[in-house]
Write a protein that binds this DNA or RNA. Sequence first.
DNA 1: TCCCGAGTGGGGAGAAGTGGGGAGAAGTGT
DNA 2: ACACTTCTCCCCACTTCTCCCCACTCGGGA
Lengths: 138, 138
Amino acid sequence: MTGVYRHSIDTKGRLAMPSRIREELGEVFYVTISMERCLTAYSSESWERFMDKIKAMPRVKQIKMRPLFAHAAKCELDSQGRILLPQALRDFAALDKNVAIVGAGECAELWDEAAWDAIDTVETTPENIAEVLQELDF
Amino acid sequence: MTGVYRHSIDTKGRLAMPSRIREELGEVFYVTISMERCLTAYSSESWERFMDKIKAMPRVKQIKMRPLFAHAAKCELDSQGRILLPQALRDFAALDKNVAIVGAGECAELWDEAAWDAIDTVETTPENIAEVLQELDF
DNA sequence: TCCCGAGTGGGGAGAAGTGGGGAGAAGTGT
DNA sequence: ACACTTCTCCCCACTTCTCCCCACTCGGGA
C-alpha cells in the first residue's frame, strides 16, 4: 500500500477510500486505533494474521491487547467505495473533514490532513530515508 | 539498468519511459523518493522483496519505514509506454519538464535534467571512479 | 527514400471523488 | 404495538482526473 491521498469526510460521515487502496484492502477490512494519533486499516488477510499472533500469546498478554479490539471496526465499502467510520474512531484520530489516507506498506493509515503534514515534514528527511533504505538493505 | 535518457513530461503530467528501462522494470513498477533530490524506480520483484521484509518486522519498526511507502507510487505503463507521476512525487524531485532517467544498477533514478547534469559533472571524474572501483575491490 | 521504432501531443470515453435525496432498518419513548 | 427519530446505505447527478486511442515527428537502417 503506497501513496498519500487527500479525501474528505462528507456531511454524512462517509469517507471515500482511494481506488488504489481499495484494490489492496479489499471489500471488507478492519480499522483500529494506532500508537499514534491516527487510525490503521488492515486487509482481512493482515487482520487474520494479526489474530493468529494474538491467539498464540498467553492469556495475560492477550488482555493487554484488548483496547485494540475494543476500538476496532469492521468496515465494508458501500456501492460508491466509501466507508462509514464510527464516531469514536473519528474522535480518536481527530478526523473531521480533511483526511489523508496514507499507504504504509502492509497497512493504510488515516490521518487528519494537517496532522499528517506535520508528521510528514518531520520524518521525511534525507537522513531518515537513508536509514530506511539501509535497513531494507537497498 | 544502465544509461542516461533525457525525456520530457508533457502537459498532462505523463513521462515516457525509455524502452531499454521498460524492458528491465516491467509493465508495473514502483517509484518512490530517494535520499537525494530525485526519485527511484524499482521493479515489482524488488518491491516485493521490500514488502516481505516489512511484513516480517514488528509494528513499531514498520512505522519507521513509512516515509518510503507513503511517498511511493505504483506506476503502470500506458499503451504508449508512459507513466503518470503523482504531483507530490514530481514536486519532491522538482521535476517539471525535462527529466533525466538514469540507470543505476538494480533501479532507475529520475532527475530534473539540470540537477542531474550538475551532480554528474561533480561525481564523474577519474579520481572518483578510481575511488569507487577501489571501494568495490574491483 | 521508405520503413519502423521511439518519443510527443491531444481528443474523448469512462473511472473516481463528491454531494444530496430518499427508502428502509434500527433504536427510543409513550 | 405504535409513532417518531436517527442511522445506514441505496441511487442519481455532477465534476475532475485517468487513461485509452489515434496521429504526428524524428532519426537510424535497409
